[in-house]
């Protein structure tokens, strides 16, 4: 098994490192680098970002910006279905509210 995490923001690409385990929340297999520890067991950055109590690292921060760009700009037909499901969460504020 290889890691099913997608790296990157503008050019998403599967990680493909050997998987060491899986996300205890969504089940996808993960390498060491993309496993985040927290109260509900090891999780992928998406689940760590949407669940309380998980440590924040570069990957979870990137995931948080990735999902905000997705909700703000629709993401076109840009994400795979699995990723679309994973990022369709709470709405973020409109991107032009800081203009006023």
């Amino acid at each position: 098994m290889t890691c099913q995490w997608q790296t990157g923001l503008l050019v998403p690409q599967p990680c493909e490192m050997p998987a060491m385990g899986g996300c205890s929340l969504c089940g996808r297999s993960l390498c060491m680098m993309h496993t985040v520890s927290g109260p509900n067991g090891p999780a992928c950055p998406t689940c760590a970002n949407s669940n309380q109590g998980y440590e924040q690292n570069e990957e979870t921060e990137l995931e948080s910006s990735r999902s905000s760009y997705y909700t703000q700009y629709g993401g076109a037909n840009y994400f795979t279905n699995r990723d679309r499901q994973s990022v369709e969460r709470e709405e973020v504020e409109g991107y032009d509210e800081f203009e006023t």
Binding site: L9, L10, V11, P12, S68, Q72, Y73, Y78, Y95
Partner: peptide, 20 residues
């Protein structure tokens, strides 16, 4: 920086499917 990335992100969403 997020404002700038938001713009780049949308331009990248214009790429045809095979490039994604």
């Amino acid at each position: 920086g997020a404002d700038a990335v938001g713009m780049l992100y949308r331009l990248c969403s214009m790429r045809p499917a095979e490039a994604k």
